[in-house]
Design a protein around this nucleic acid. Structure first.
Lengths: 197, 197, 197, 197
DNA sequence: CATGAATGAGTATTCATTCAT
DNA sequence: CATGAATGAATACTCATTCAT
């Protein structure tokens, strides 16, 4: 039966991760008590330790899960578009809508969680680097089709990713429209044409 | 007398703030021990409490001092330029050079420090809002002189500020040049001209 | 199971109260370390805080428990007597024997414990007032049966209670006999008869 | 000159003792800060240590001074009376009036101050013993003149001293009259005559 | 498997005392 | 003599983790 063996486990583990996300994003690491996570998950405190060896590891697993899930959603929707410009647009739109659907996500950016250990930091930087490379490849494709100017693809990727933060507090996700952001990103601030070297 | 007369107090307070900056940025709030700050300042632990009522308040005062100092330096240099484009350029250049001179500054962006109280959070958002308004006014000036396209000045300001983060880890301040960043910010990613509505 | 089932909690709480009584009466509040109370109770320091929210509250609870227990013992034995004189006699005898059985009780009168909060002070004064009223009613009964002279019952009660202190240090409970004390209390110091107004 | 040498010292020492009395009786030992005593005396904190080697010693000196002063006043007035009954009456009257003039005195009885060291405790018990002996001699004199019954003079003295506490809180010094107290002390509670052995 | 009672390491803060001025 | 800035010892309390049931 589906309720018999390993299923219950995965369900409970997921329930713990969900509670952990809720509490960690609301209170930050130090203010989060394992008790509270357990209670929110409707289980005993000791049970948390059957699934995660420590509070730190629980945080790391939760962060990994959230980041993976969101990046994967982002990439999935982007992959459904072919055109570089369309990919960027769907990325921004997806990012904005994910934040709007789940405002707690914004806390992941605000709370540090930086004390997580070196291994996690490395994993996180790798994920960022991978994602930046992914965006850089899109930029390169755009440059190749001459839609984009011959900019440094890595820098462009870094800027594209940085600009996602305009949808985070304190600006708020309601303030700016995706199209307006893309307008500036695509055509720049200046009236004039770029200098010809 | 030592150096001036009555200066001792302010000197010692500043010395404590400096030590606090060094230790807080290196270790984060929880891992920072008041003892360590005191030792680095070359004073006794109790002395810290003659100048600051608590470890939390010490952090807040240190953050305020650093933010004020850096924003003030930024604005001072920007005010020496008249042209909007020149102002932005000097802002990016100053930001990059401040980070290069003092890499610990980058930690201010990374560490959590989220427990800072509501009063501090309010102060910080006000500072951010003020700075964004300051940038927005520069953009407006650029629009008026028709150097800039008629974009939303607040959005432009938010993007300009967001893009400063490309000089922070994990990208690193060595990776990208100020001119390259400004090139993309000014002329956008696209080869084509913006759509005419 | 240990002894009963669910009794463990109350047992441990009582064990902590007993240890607290021993240490607080021996050392006073400030010199008492929570660690020491815990060790004497044979438990960990943290466990004390599962039963009492603070060291102060532990003291208050201990004091309340001791006072209640002793007053209750006093009243119980007094209620078994009918005659006012017999009641007073059993009160003095019980008081003296309680102090002899447990000399630490005397410390409750000697130690400061002054920081006890307003709520406790109010409770304590109420207990004292209740007990004084109880004694005053006994005096009134004695006056009605004309065993006692028509004295102010409240004053008589206050004096009767005050005189209990001759069994406390530094006089010591061995020095004076209950009968001798009662003799003076009943018939006064004077040879002559009281003045007739 | 009178202001030159030792006079200023004695004045300041006394001023410190007065402040110490005020603060210690109001707050108890632990809650009293040396700073506060110094400020009330209008001097610097360090100056206290020119006159008293420690906070504890300051408390002891203050207590000694107050006790000596009050006992001496008591004895002085009692010595002006010849008759045992008159001596007791003036003792009670003086005690009640001293408490009324300076309610803080009552705190000396309420606050423990028992942690003061062994030497002080010994001194205090000696003073008490001396005073009890003094009262006992008065009782003996009364017995000799057959005004008093042949009671144990030490017990009588202990009871006489114990009964002084009816003028202390929580009973309050306004509640009971000296004459009423003496009436009970002299003629006892009972209507009947004491048993003849 | 699940629980939650028990544990004890770890740290900010106070304030009596000192001593350079 | 007088001061008060500086010191640092001393301690209650929290909460992640364990393990007997």
């Amino acid at each position: 039966m589906s309720t018999g063996g390993g299923y219950g486990d995965a369900d409970k583990r997921q329930k713990i991760l969900d509670s952990a996300f809720a509490v960690f994003t609301k209170k930050g690491y130090q203010q989060t008590k394992v008790d509270e996570v357990a209670q929110l998950a409707g289980i005993g405190k000791g049970t948390v330790y059957l699934y995660f060896p420590s509070k730190e590891e629980l945080l790391r697993e939760m962060l990994k899960a959230m980041i993976k899930k969101n990046l994967s959603e982002l990439k999935k929707r982007m992959s459904e578009e072919e055109h570089p410009l369309a990919k960027l647009k769907v990325m921004y739109a997806t990012h904005a809508s994910l934040l709007q659907e789940n405002p707690s996500l914004a806390q992941l950016h605000i709370h540090d969680f930086a004390f997580v250990n070196e291994a996690f930091r490395a994993w996180l930087e790798q994920e960022k680097a991978d994602f930046m490379a992914y965006i850089a490849r899109i930029v390169e494709a755009g440059i190749k089709t001459e839609e984009f100017r011959p900019v440094n693809p890595n820098l462009a990727a870094a800027l594209i990713i940085s600009c996602l933060s305009v949808f985070l507090p304190p600006y708020g996700s309601d303030t700016f429209s995706v199209d307006d952001v893309l307008d500036i990103l695509h055509y720049g601030l200046c009236q004039s044409l770029p200098p010809r070297p």
